[in-house]
Amino acid sequence: MENLINIFVRSVFIDNMVFAYFLGMCSYLAVSKTVKTSAGLGVAVVFVMAITVPVNYLMNKFLLLPGALSWLHPSLASLDLSFLSFIMFIAVIASIVQLVEMVVEKYSPSLYNALGIFLPLIAVNCAILGGSLFMQEREYETLAEATVFGLGSGLGWFLAIISIAAIREKIKYSNIPKPLRGLGIAFILTGLMGIAFMTFMGIKL
């Protein structure tokens, strides 16, 4: 349990997808003009991340790792398919996004309208694929760890986009040097926020 909380806190604050690894920056910068739309995208990311990371964990464990296929037939024990992980992960993500889109459309039209165009965009959000690749690289041991990591990373991304959107809404009224307006200041703000987030470094539960 302690281990799970530790992974959660790490993935939200210390190894934050945006501030520590710059993942999902494209949609982060493009969508963060108002808090409302960023909240929509943020929720969608948390949702998809919490599903894809555990699914990819199972894929990795039972299909890709060296010897992972031995449950199928003992003669397959020497097979190592890990070079296929990129294509496998991205296919899983793209199809889950499609699936989630259909399910949400059927059972919760209001949520579907709120998420709107963001769901399809998520398939190419680097944070999602990044989550699965980090899961593979850090070799989480149980399904619970992978799930908590996925959820935490999604929430970290949510936190980041909400805060930058709030700042950008306020900063509209400030007198920024003209060439720096828009994109330039958003980069510098993200950098400063990243420095602020670095203070979490070294926290261990």
Binding site: I185, I188, I195
Partner: peptide, 10 residues
């Protein structure tokens, strides 16, 4: 530190 890359791009 990572954030400096963003500031440099800015």
């Amino acid at each position: 530190v990572p954030p400096m890359a963003l500031i440099l791009i800015g």
